[in-house]
Computed example of a mutant assay.
Amino acid sequence: MVETTPTTAVNPLVVQHNALVNAKFDLNTHEARLFLALLARLQRTDTAFSKCQLLVREIVPSTGSNNVYDQVRRMLKDFASRTLTIEKLSSDGRPLKKPSFTVIPLLAYATYLEGEGMIEAQFNDLLLPYLLELRDNFTKAQLTELLKLKSANSYRIYWLLREYAAFGKRTIRLDELKAILGLDQEYDRFNNFRARILDRAQAELAATDLPFTYEAIKQGREVTEIKFSFKPVTPTQAIAAPGSNYSEWEAAVLAAGVSAASLPLIQARLAAGDYDLGYIRYVLDTVKGQVRTGKIKKEGGAVFKALTDGYLLPDYQQKQTAVVSKKKPTASTNPQRKKLLIELEDARNSLRFIQTAVIYTDETRAVAAAEVQAKIDQLEKQLAS
């Protein structure tokens, strides 16, 4: 097995497949924090899981006694044994026509690094299609919002509502919600579930970007469904990395009338090497010319179709071939360079997050920032060579 360098850098944007959002598993508060910490260490360009390392104090804030470390060891033992019931996916990461579920372990391993005050863990490789190289059917959230939540159930409910952010409402059967939260054998009385789960989640999410109200829907005298209502997230309010503006090409695409919610689809095709930034510029220029001549009326729709379907790619590639025959290819057409640019963007976002996130002390912030800055310097050097 290839030895990998442990990952400690934090990604301010957390992403997971919708099947994982709706998976059935039970975590306590500390386990939920650890799960979130591991998610935040995944990078857009990852194709395999790396070992992740994080400080114990990131999971358990009070680390002043040996009892805390004993608690961490017990937590890791329980966390490493957690399984989840999750919907199977096809080879291209899509749900099967006939839903089928499987039970898989959450982690490959988890351990406490003696004398370092560090936790090391790695996701189970069976979770690869649910966490890496996602193209569609995924939900994303800002880490800064998730860190505001205190209970594991509030964290799961946040993700369930975030999946439906564009609609502003989600109705879930009560038995399904309890199963997703791992509470299907608890809270026979709805009043207890309301007070300890729903009301607490409502209070905690009120401090996030996703406050909600809910209604208990009855059949006869029995509550059978919960209807959640919240302010819908419009396309122009799509999540971006905190503290960062859109890149030049993203701003140009948005200015053409493409919704911000569509950017991940385009980013995925870029990351996959289906085309380069030159194609995006070509599409924008070509469509704008077609608008001027009256060939098309909706610029945004035409740009979106060209960038997701790639129907202008043959024309673009033909023009590029003509240029290449006269001129030596530049590094900008190199897939490796595109990968480095994505890594550089993610590293800069991570650095901005580290500089402001409350999960760091002055000491740990300096260490984490130095590590990410070193990576930025290395990437910039590679791109300049």
Rank of each mutant, 00 (worst) to 15 (best):
K339A: 11
I266N: 01
G93C: 05
A252D: 04
V223M: 03
D315T: 12
Q16E: 08
L127Y: 06
E343W: 07
D26M: 15
R170S: 12
L38G: 07
G300K: 00
Y214M: 08
L263I: 03
D309C: 12
M118H: 10
Q317H: 12
N124S: 10
A302E: 12
I280P: 03
Y158E: 00
A256G: 04
K148F: 04
N66T: 15
N349Q: 11
A260Q: 04
K98C: 12
A368R: 03
Q16L: 13
E116S: 12
L34Y: 01
K140C: 13
G243L: 04
Q43P: 08
N67D: 15
P264A: 01
R337H: 10
C52A: 11
L20F: 06
P242H: 03
D188C: 11
D362C: 10
V21Q: 05
K140D: 12
K140N: 15
R194T: 01
G300M: 04
P329G: 07
S247R: 11
S65P: 05
P314G: 00
A347P: 02
A121K: 04
A216M: 07
L254R: 03
F353V: 02
D285N: 09
Q336G: 14
L36G: 03
R281A: 10
N245T: 13
E133I: 15
D78N: 12
R352F: 08
N66D: 15
D70Y: 15
V303I: 04
N11T: 06
V323I: 11
L149H: 06
D188M: 13
R73N: 07
P61H: 07
V258Y: 01
S262N: 10
V233C: 11
V324W: 15
K77F: 13
A207L: 13
L76H: 04
E371Y: 08
R269N: 01
Y246F: 11
V10S: 01
V303G: 03
K319Q: 09
Q142E: 14
E371K: 07
I342V: 10
R352K: 10
I239P: 07
G93W: 07
S229H: 13
L38W: 12
L183D: 03
N334G: 08
L198F: 02
A256W: 00
D175M: 12
A251G: 04
F138P: 06
D125H: 11
G273R: 00
E345C: 10
A110N: 07
L312I: 03
L265K: 12
E58S: 08
D125C: 10
V287Y: 02
F138G: 08
T102K: 05
F167Y: 15
L161N: 01
T361M: 05
F138L: 01
L181Y: 04
R44K: 14
A203S: 11
L307Q: 02
D362R: 07
L149R: 07
N11V: 00
Y130I: 03
R82G: 11
A9N: 09
D209G: 03
L340M: 13
E204Y: 06
T102H: 07
K326H: 14
A322Q: 09
A251K: 09
D362L: 09
Q355V: 07
T364V: 04
D136S: 14
P235Y: 05
A238L: 08
K88I: 02
R41I: 02
V303K: 03
